[in-house]
Every structure is written in C-alpha cells, then in structure tokens.
Design a protein around this nucleic acid. Structure first.
Lengths: 202, 202, 202, 202
DNA sequence: TATGAATGAGTGTTCATTCAT
DNA sequence: TATGAATGAACACTCATTCAT
C-alpha cells in the first residue's frame, strides 16, 4: 500500500547503490538477484524500478561512477607531482593506486571482474576509460625510459605488470592486518622502482 | 535427434569438460547454462547427467584438475633447478608461471575468477592448494632474503605482488602478438629480480 | 518534469479520453498500460487517478459515451424519415450506420472488440444498448416484411447480416481512398435493399 | 519430479493447442496467461516450454493452422463447382463460408480478433493468406459482373460486405438454436445473390 | 491537481535437475 | 547412454493502484 515512512527519494537510490555494491562484490553480478537486492534495501522488488531501469544499467552505473571517482581522485593526487620527474611521479602513482585500491576495494573488484557482464556498448565505454588510465602509467614509464632512468623492456607490458601487482592488494589487504597501508606502499614502491631502475640482468 | 557419431562413452565426458571450459571462460559459471553446454557438446540436457552429477561438481572437477596439472607441471619444471640457488630458482619460477598462464589461460582464469562459485567445501580445498603453491614462491623469497640476496620487505606481500604481476599475462597475452612468450618472460624476470635485488630506496 | 502547459483541469480528462481511445484502438485494452496512457497525455501515472477511478472504468466510460453518441446521432438522423415507409427508412439506416462507422471508426471498433474486457455489470449494460440499437433495424425489417416489401427469411438474422456488412467498413475504409463514403453507401444500399426486395430464389 | 503418468509426448502438445484455443477464445490472447494455460492442460508452467517456444509462437501456430485448414476445406468444397457458372459458385462459397464459420467458430474468431497481437512478420504472413482467400470471392464477383449477371458496384467492396455478413455468424450462431445451419445459409444466399442480381436502384 | 515512490500480485521465460523409456 | 518430457523454484521485469507531499 503506502510507502514505508522514512524510506524515500534519493536516499533509496543511495541505498540501492550501496546494497548493489555489497551484493555484487559478495556473489557476483549474475548470482545476485534483484530479490536479494530489494530485501537488502528493505523495499519490494518492483519498487527498485522506480530508481533503476534494468539490472544491467545498475551495474553500468556503479562501474561508471567508480571510474569517474578513480579519475577524479587520480587527477587530484597527480596534480601535486605534475612538474616532478618520472621517478617521483611513479612513486606518486604507486601510492595513489594502492591507496585507492585499498579504500575502494569493492568498487575496484567489481570494476574488473564484472566487466564481462556489461553489454557491448557499456563494455566498450568502460574499457576505453581503463585504457586511458593505463596510458597515464605508460606515459610515465616512457618518459623515464627516454630520460635513461627506467629500463622497461616494453613500457606497455611493464605497465600491465605493475598494475596487476598493485591492483592485487584489493584481494588480500585487510585494514588493521599485519601490515599498514604505508608499509605495503613502501614494499611495492621498492619492488616497482627497483625493477625498473636496477642493474640489467645479464 | 540422433546422437552425434563418436560422442559417446569417455569421449562424451571429455567433450563436456572441453565445452564447459570454453563456456565458463566466455560467459562465467553462473551465466553458463547446462542447455548451452549440452548444445555445444551436441547432446540433450538430460544426457549430461550421465556424465556429471551436478553443475557445481563440473566446476569443481575442472578447477581441481587444473590445480593437479599445475602442480604436476610445476614439480617437473622446478626439479631441474632443485639444487640451484634462490636467484636461479626464482628465474625458473617466473618462466614456469608465465608459460603455464599463457598456455592454460582459460583454466587459470576460471581457477581464479570462479572460485567464489564453489561450495564452501570445494572452495576450501582449492584455496588450500593455491596457498600451497604460493608458499613455494614465498620459500624461495625467504631463502633469498636469508642469503642477503633479496630484499623483499615482506616475503608474503612480495610474493602476492609477483604472482599478480605474472598471472596477469593470461588476461592480455596473445600468441603471435607483438611480443613472444620469451620476451615477456625476460621483461618480467628483469622486473621481479631487479625489484628484489636492486639497491634499497632511500 | 513540469506539467505540459495547458494540460490541466477538464482539459486533462479530455486528453486522457482521447489518448485512451487511440491506444486502445491501436493495442487493445489489455495490451495498453496506464504508463503508456500517462506518457501519451504527458503526465505521470499517479496523476491519472485524479481523473479516472480505474482502468476498467475508463474503458466503460469510453464505450458508454460512444453508445450515447451513437443513439443521439441515430435519433437525429432517423427523425427526418420518421414518417416515411420501410424502404426509405432502411436507406436512411444504411446511410447513417455507414457514415457513423466511418467517422467514429475507433470508437466503434473498441465498442465491439473490447466488450469482453468489461466487467459483467458493465458488459450487460452495453450489450443491452447494442440490442436496443439492433432492434431498431429489426423493426424496420419487420415492418417491410409485413408490408410485403421485404423478404427477410428471418428478420433478426437478416439484421445481423446487414449490421455486420455495414459495420465492416470501419476496418477497411480509408478517407481519400479509392471510393468516397457516398459510393460505399450507394453500393451497400443496393446490396441490402436488393437482397431484401429482389426476386425470391428458386 | 517425475512426469505425471499418462501425460506425454504429442498428446501434450495437442492438449496445449486445444486449451490455448479455448482460453484465447474466451479471454483474448493478451488476457490469457500461460499459468492459466498450463493449469488447463494439467502441467506446470515451465513444462509448456517443452512444446512451444514462446506464447507468441503458440498464437501464430494456432492461426496459421487455422488458415491451412480453411484453404484445405475451401479447395475441397469449391472443386465440386469448379466448372459451374458464377451464380452456382457464389452459392457454394456462401454455403462453405457459413458452414466453416459455424463449425470452427473459435478458430475463426481468434484468426480475426487476435491478428493485432501477432508480431509484424507473423502478421504479414497471415494477412497475405486472408487476402488470398478474399481474392477467390472477388474473382467470382468479377466473373459474374463480366457475364452481366451480377451488379456489384465495386467487386472488392461488395466482397468485403459479403464476407463480413457471412463471417458474422460465428459470433451469434448457436447449434440447436432457433435456426438450423441450412436455414441460415438459405437466408444469406438469398440476401447475397439478391443483392447482386436484383434490379438496380434508381 | 500533479508528482514520485511505494506496493504486491502478476507476467513470460529460464533454470538445474529427475526419470521412464 | 541418450532422449524428451516433466518439475518447481527462480528469474528480471511490468502492472494497476495508493498516497504523502
């Protein structure tokens, strides 16, 4: 009949996004049902459709918003080192990427693992944005290479490796765990920088 | 409809496993239906149950077989360098891991991305095996660290990073692409070894 | 979204009736949704209920209004020939019925095809009115028969046949098509009158 | 679980068609739910899909089968008078059409009233067949006109009128009612033939 | 009077699974 | 061992309707 008091408007949409994030992270997009989602939000299934157009669109909306946030925070973080050299900018990149992937671990995980559930148009849009992000790292590596500072072998492959290494933290890092975020950043900075700047293998 | 000639007995089971691998890799376990699978094999849905007990068991079977194969090939590859030092054994590990992840990219991808679709018992069993595999790398790192050869910061975190970096190849490597497998191994060996053996950051 | 200018008050009700007529004619009553209707009118679904009580009542309202209009125009048209003989009155009936079914083709079509979607009470009321209308034709036939002018075989069955023939125009007549309304009336007048007044079959 | 004993194979499909015919006739295609249909047949909803591909296809299948049957019986009935003149062939047409529309009243009613629920492709196919049927009558009228026997005004419009008149019987004829089928045929034959052959109106 | 968010029952359709043949 | 027909629960989504604002 009438609406449940206190559950209205933009607050409902926010609750749907939050619950969607949680359930997709826990069960995967395909395995999450809109019944689960509605129950988590505390409304009826049909009511979801006052806020989303399809299940697919909810997924795209969440991933797209995550990409926007990623770029927004990335720009802020990199602005500080914009006029520094490649080494310092790479350090900043590592610190930013690890931090973001620890703080937004669910968004990040979904943004990678549920890509295949996006329909072609949405898929293309997100993949394009991901490539754009990768290119920022590749650009730093290229610059370092040109300056004789880094030895990448191949900037793109090196970038893929670095991104995979750093992104991995979202699968195992636990806040209040054995290591602090700063320690992880230090370890991976050393590993990445050392790998690029160290002596060449024989 | 008559049965496809030659698709009976153990050959049918093999066809099911092959088709399952393909479809799960392409659509994900949740998104793959047994109707699709039966169609791919060329039999009726009901007939699948002469060969598998449940959809879940098929998934476990595929992942479990992949783990067995991983360990089997791993043992063979590492036996050659069993009496060598940490550096050489790490090189061997990198070469093996990259190679395996290029050759068995579908098994490897499923073995990681569909873990969450496993029932608790099956999940535990596979995760245990994965930890066992990780521990081989950690042991090499530890040994190198003790020998004053590597500077890991933290062997486990370093291992996670290395594994993520190397495992990543299964998502982007294309045979006959821009780089050969050997080039990729060279690049990542340099990156991994350099990251561990290079000069400490200030 | 702001309301469409000029679509408030009684004008809104009129817009709803007009849009309802159009959509029911095009898709059928069951297939038309109130969401479609609201969109066509340019308001939100909930707002419909300031003007109609239920979807069912809207249908009844439209059909009932159509019957009222039919009778009103019928009375006017037949008043002119009230004191003429059966032949002239039958000619007037044919002309009126065809004209009305061309001009009000949507109302007429709905009034016949959506009867079954009416609730029992509403259904009875409309069917009663339809019988009343039929009886006017039957009365003319009866009178002609008694006067030795018509040979119907059975007045009621003849009336059903004539009504079906004439009503049919609403499904195929196109204004500005190959034939004018007057030509159609001439053809069917000839066919109806000839069929009743012609020589008996052997 | 297991199948209900005695309800299998082609018998189920036949039961679905029969129940579908009944329910669509009674409630209309849009208003009939597959749950109703399954209940009428005595199986579960999902089981319907072992026999039909979609609800839409069931409708098309029923209408298409009806058209086939119509043409099949039409050919048989008209073969007898193939070498007769237009008058006798028109009499045969009236007798056949009325008979068929009394005996197959449900199929005929659905075949006309649910056309609009067909998707475009299916709709075109059926409408083409209906036009083909109409053309047989038009051909008879044309021939009679050329022979100076009939005075149609316009053969196509006359045909539409005749078809509407005759088709109407499926909405009101009751077996064992006031009139026999033969009486109805006699009345409408007189009305149709008289309308075409009678003296011209002034 | 219009809106937007809610309800709960309903839609057609798909699913993994079972089992007599 | 393969088939085809069955089950019953589940799916995403739509519906007419209500009502506080």
């Amino acid at each position: 009949m009438a609406r449940t008091i206190g559950s209205h408007g933009p607050r409902t949409m926010e609750a749907i996004r939050k619950a969607g994030l949680k359930l997709i992270y826990e069960h995967g997009f395909e395995a999450m049902s809109l019944r689960q989602l509605a129950a988590e939000v505390g409304i009826q299934v049909g009511s979801l459709y006052n806020h989303i157009s399809t299940k697919q669109d909810l997924l795209f909306d969440l991933i797209r918003a995550h990409m926007d946030e990623l770029f927004s925070q990335f720009d802020t973080a990199m602005a500080v080192v914009a006029d520094k050299g490649p080494e310092e900018r790479l350090r900043a990149f590592v610190a930013f990427h690890v931090t973001y992937h620890i703080v937004r671990k669910r968004e990040v995980f979904i943004g990678a693992s549920e890509l295949r559930s996006l329909e072609p148009n949405h898929y293309e849009e997100i993949v394009t944005l991901r490539r754009l992000y990768e290119r920022h790292l590749i650009a730093i590596l290229d610059e370092g290479e040109k300056a004789g500072l880094f030895h990448c072998g191949d900037a793109r492959v090196a970038a893929y490796g670095i991104l995979a290494m750093l992104t991995g933290v979202c699968t195992w890092f636990r806040p209040h765990g054995r290591l602090t975020k700063e320690q992880v950043i230090a370890i991976y900075s050393q590993q990445v920088l050392g790998g690029l700047m160290g002596p060449r293998a024989p």
